[in-house]
Amino acid sequence: MTLLSPPRPGHTVWRRFRRHRGAVAGAAVLGFLVLAVLLGPWLWSLDPTYIDVRARSAGPSPAHPLGTDQLGRDMLARLLAGGRVSIAVGLAAMAVSLGLGTLIGVLAGFFRRLDSLLMRLTDLFLALPVIPLVLVAVMLFREPLNHSFGPQAGIFVLVVLAIGLTSWMPTARVVRGAVLELKEREFILAARGIGTPDAAIITRHVLPNVASPILVSAALGTANAILTESALSFLGLGFPPDFPTWGRLLSDATVYLQDYPGRALWPGGLICLTVLGVNYLGDGLRDAFDIRGDAR
């Protein structure tokens, strides 16, 4: 049975991924950003909420390398704290939407009876407008979540779920397409022929082989979630004004664009870098997994 599976592509994939310079650069940038925001509190110990009234709106100085905001809070510390939240939101929301999308995609592609129903459900979700839904979700669930997780974790869970639950549809469609194609391949037919249970076929044969579209949409999903979070912050539906995230910092700083452009450029640049990095990474993954692409 294992003989019938195509050869494990791991080694080739890694070789091809390494050859994709953009992808390597993207991965490096992302790795650096993640490390920076994770180790940030140890490297730069200023409290992002500490107000130094005398140093309001200060430019870069040894005490505040990136300057301070309108209340005198250290920008570097706020960027590090904000990045932790933004990246965490991106990854967590991606995980939610990916899990849901993959589940629905695989079920729809694999079980013909569920297909029509699940795809209509997907259409339905695509039809529901995101912003009002997110707003309603925020209003409905903020209080219960605050009680069970505390005010900051509560809103985090809320934003993650709101983004995740409204962005799984493309993944579901892509995965379903891939599964449909895969289902007719010999090794699946063979596995079914020898009586392997459905669950085992899915976990052992289907999932590993649809990994590439899943990984690619994971990369793009992370970027999307970070951007959605910033849009929510701008509309006042996301994290509250006193809770730094890159999106929040950027939308607060647009007011000061003419007076203190640096305040907007830093969070804006970091969002940009993250999204770019993630996209190049996704590109590299797609090319690396694409068998036909190599043959050219």
Binding site: T49, I51, V53, P241, D242
Partner: peptide
Amino acid sequence: STNAVRQDFQALIKQ
């Protein structure tokens, strides 16, 4: 209420 000036005031008063 959620409002940029009020959140700034809150942060200052808290400190």
